[in-house]
Design a protein around this nucleic acid. Sequence first.
DNA 1: TCTAGGATCGGCT
DNA 2: GCCGATCCTAGAT
Length: 217
Amino acid sequence: MNPAPPVTQMTEPMDDLLTKSQLDAAPILPRGFYQRPTLEVAGELLGALIVRRTDAGVVAVRITEVEAYLGVADPACHTFGGRRSRRNESMWGPAGHAYVYRIYGLHCCLNIVTVGDGTPEAVLIRGATTVHGGGLVADRRGPTVARRSWTDGPGKLCRALAVGLTDDGADLCSAEGALTVRRGAGAATVGEVERLPRVGVDYAGEAADWPLRLRLK
DNA sequence: TCTAGGATCGGCT
DNA sequence: GCCGATCCTAGAT
């Protein structure tokens, strides 16, 4: 006689929007996708899926909000003026890799490197909705956090996906990788995207007003 | 070596 | 809506 089923079955979310097989069927965005103008990439990342594999299981989110950071000519960007350091080294590398950094000593932010070939630009993933692995996310975010608040900020998103500094530089285009970005079933269509100024970059002068924050309505 | 400040979050009022 | 937490990073000296 077997006792009661394991607790994990109870935390298995009843409302995952995508199944494991649907995730596997979604094609990984190829490196060429990222080797284009950053704003173009940012717009097309809306609706795409970030799939995270760990020993604990698989979590997938659909990207709903991003910000474009335009490299050496963008005062809000970590590589403005050609700045290059250990922290932002990943931005100087090939496109399609992760750039993860710690902010305020507390949180991590996930970026995707674009363009490549010594053009250090990136797209910051600001917000997403969980489409698979909700039980795991609930465990990571804690019981007091409402579902809608699981991934509605860059730091929260990293916690939900268990993304940390060890993921800095990770290749997002490799099927074997623990972190991949896949084409979303319902990618954003023209007219559903609103363009806003970026958050928290007041120090960047007029660049703070550039409408490089893209959000699904 | 020192110091100021930050691409945030969550608790409290 | 406000404010404190917390520590890494880059720039100044």
